[in-house]
């Protein structure tokens, strides 16, 4: 006779669609609160089916405007959709101005939409540390589609692949040295290319260039990266952008790549979580100050000191 597995009350409220409970739990996940941890543990088995669509790309290319247009489109299709918009924290004050909401207007009484702004709080890679956990909370609350906007530094937003099932890289005509941006890693993360601001001159050219680049091969040889031209001001290309995203999600299912991607993401997530524990543990090791001295005196080099430390700890465990 096993007792019925009761969910923690906050988890039950979340699943029942209590938006305030959702908002509080997101804060808890960001702050690494024990209560939110417990809820995340409880809901985990129910998650893993949402479409997590990442929008990455340089500053000001129109990521928020595109999300705004996609919101309207997805609501017209009857889909529930959540948005997580990430902006950088100041390395000096730790504070942040989160401004993506400015571009997002929607009927305030629509329960099919939930928007949350997050600061990176020192986390590198264009996302906040808790982005994955926040996405799980949103999924458990019934949002089958989660749109994630990265900070927009362009070069370092590679972590979107750690979260998103489909990554959209947004560029604009005449981005300056576009090829440079692509070299810096955006090319490797794109499942879909979007040339936004296609109302501006040079859009056709940009689209052709990208299509050519995309045909050189993507990270996944089975997927041909589509290039979609959009404009949020006209507007145009929004249904086509969504179709391209949907096609990629369907490709993931039909090819078995969804599971493969999830395995890769979870491997990375466990590694990162374990790493932060190891690092915390190491930095508390009382032998650390003593290990620095011979390095400071130039008797051994840092690498040797680190290797010896590691070996001694391994022996200590054996």
């Amino acid at each position: 006779m096993s007792p019925a597995r009761r969910l923690p009350p906050a988890a039950q409220a979340l699943i029942d669609g209590d938006r305030r409970a959702l908002a509080r739990l997101i804060t808890g996940a960001e702050n690494d609160d024990p209560g939110a941890r417990e809820v995340l543990r409880a809901i985990y088995p129910r998650t893993g089916h949402a479409w997590l669509v990442g929008l990455a790309g340089p500053l000001g290319v129109g990521k928020s405007s595109l999300i705004n247009a996609l919101l309207a489109h997805l609501r017209s299709l009857g889909k529930k959709v959540a948005v997580v918009a990430v902006d950088p924290s100041s390395p000096f004050s730790g504070g942040s101005v989160l401004g993506d909401r400015i571009r997002l207007d929607r009927p305030p009484d629509d329960p099919g939409i939930f928007i949350r702004s997050m600061a990176t709080r020192g986390h590198a890679g264009g996302l906040a540390r808790a982005t994955r956990e926040v996405a799980r909370l949103l999924e458990a609350a019934g949002f089958g589609i989660v749109l994630v906007e990265t900070v927009g530094s362009g070069q370092v937003d590679v972590e979107i692949r750690q979260v998103a099932t489909t990554s959209v890289v947004v560029l604009v005509p005449h981005l300056g040295d576009e090829v440079q941006t692509l070299k810096a890693g955006l090319f490797e993360i794109a499942d879909v290319f979007c040339v936004n601001k296609s109302d501006l001159p040079g859009a056709d050219r940009a689209r052709r260039d990208l299509t050519e680049l995309a045909s050189l091969g993507s990270v996944d040889p089975g997927w041909r990266v589509p290039v979609v031209a959009t404009s949020t001001t006209i507007p145009s290309g929004i249904p086509e952008l969504w179709q391209a995203i949907e096609a990629h999600e369907h490709y993931l299912d039909s090819s078995g790549k969804r599971l493969e991607g999830e395995r890769r993401r979870l491997t990375q997530e466990i590694l990162a979580l374990a790493e932060s524990r190891f690092v915390a543990d190491l930095s508390r090791d009382p032998s650390l100050p003593r290990r620095v001295e011979p390095v400071l005196a130039r008797r051994i080099d840092p690498e040797t000191a680190a290797r010896r430390w590691w070996q001694e700890r391994r022996k200590g465990r054996a």
């Binding site: 989160l98 909401r101 600061a119």
Partner: peptide
């Protein structure tokens, strides 16, 4: 922000 707050604008 400069006082360390997260400001949703």
């Amino acid at each position: 922000r400069d006082a360390g707050m997260e400001v949703i604008y």
